[in-house]
Computed example of a mutant assay.
Amino acid sequence: MHRSIVNARSVAVLALALVAAPLGAQQRQPAAAQKATVFDVTPYAGYMHFGDIINGPLGTSLKSANAPVVGAQLGLSMGPNVGLVGNVAYGSSNLQVGVPILGGVNIGGTSKHVIYDADVELRMPMQSAGAAQQFTPFAQLGVGAITTKFQESVVKTSSTSFAGNLGAGVDVTVGRGFGVRAMVKDYVGRFDALDNTGLPVKGNTTNNIAGSVGLRLSF
């Protein structure tokens, strides 16, 4: 009789264990699923340093003055540490002539820039525990174009030129589904002054460096 009671208890414990195991797995699965995001959107604002478009005689140059930029990125996850990113940004500034000793002098014209590119994003997996898990460094590499429009009085000209880019930054998780993205990105391109202005010069290949901070929303 005693042995029967022990066997019955053993069977009951085993049955409870078999029932509890799937329930525990179901409870853990949503927690893991919450960390896996399909895509994210990051509106951002920043500041851009434009390179010299044309170098003239006696150390002079023509460029867009450094100016604020705004933009947005759309990211699509392709795996735990790899994703695709589409980006568009806009900036407007004054035309500026570089003069030795005097530095940059605004000449009254305006320059508008629309930047669009597609990138591969590589994210560094963080194994540290605690607060360090909130920080995820990443790097981006891609290609796109820069459309530049110049206007000086009644003279207008524009050019769309190929531009490669390389960027790096860090994502900081603030809460469930959102965080802060800080990034520095270098766009390398050339404004074709010969084809668009008739001037007997070629535009320089320039480094246009943007630093930005945005709100990253994950879905």
Rank of each mutant, 00 (worst) to 15 (best):
P57Q: 07
G91D: 12
I101V: 12
V99M: 07
N55P: 09
V88F: 08
T110W: 00
L76Y: 12
V99K: 02
I53E: 12
G51H: 10
N66D: 09
Y47A: 07
V41C: 13
Y47P: 08
V97Y: 11
Q96T: 06
N87H: 12
H49T: 14
A36E: 13
L95A: 00
L76H: 05
G51Y: 13
T37L: 01
L95D: 01
K112W: 04
L84V: 15
T60R: 10
G103W: 04
A72T: 10
A89T: 10
V85E: 04
G109M: 00
G83H: 06
V70Y: 14
V82H: 11
V69N: 11
G56C: 02
P43E: 12
A67Q: 08
G109N: 00
S92T: 05
L76W: 15
G71R: 11
I101W: 09
D40V: 00
D40Q: 07
P100S: 05
P68Q: 01
V85L: 07
G51M: 09
P80G: 12
S93V: 01
G75A: 02
I107N: 08
A67I: 00
Q73Y: 04
V97L: 15
L62D: 06
A72F: 03
P57I: 07
T60C: 09
A36M: 11
V41F: 15
L84F: 15
T60A: 06
V85Y: 03
L74I: 14
L74Y: 12
L62I: 12
Y47S: 08
Q73T: 15
V99E: 04
G46R: 08
D40K: 00
Q73F: 04
L84T: 13
G86Y: 11
M48P: 00
K112L: 03
N106L: 10
V85R: 05
P43W: 14
V69P: 04
N106G: 09
G91F: 03
G104P: 02
N55L: 11
I54C: 02
N87Q: 13
Q73C: 06
Y90L: 08
V41K: 09
A67S: 11
S92Y: 00
P80Q: 15
G104R: 01
V88S: 03
Y47W: 05
G59M: 13
G108P: 05
G79D: 14
Y44Q: 12
S61C: 10
G103H: 02
G108I: 05
S64R: 13
P80C: 14
K112G: 06
L58Y: 14
P68L: 05
T37Q: 01
L95T: 00
G83C: 10
A72I: 15
S111R: 02
I54S: 03
N106R: 12
G79E: 14
H49C: 10
I53P: 04
S64G: 14
K63Q: 13
V97W: 12
A65E: 05
I53H: 08
Y44G: 09
G108V: 08
G51D: 07
G98M: 05
N106D: 14
I54W: 09
N94L: 03
G59T: 11
A45I: 15
K63W: 11
K112A: 03
A89I: 04
S77H: 03
D40M: 01
M78A: 11
T37W: 13
A45N: 08
A36K: 13
L58I: 07
N55V: 10
T42P: 06
T110G: 06
V38M: 06
Q96I: 01
N81G: 06
P43S: 07
M48Y: 01
G71L: 11
P100W: 07
S64Q: 15
G71Y: 09
M48A: 07
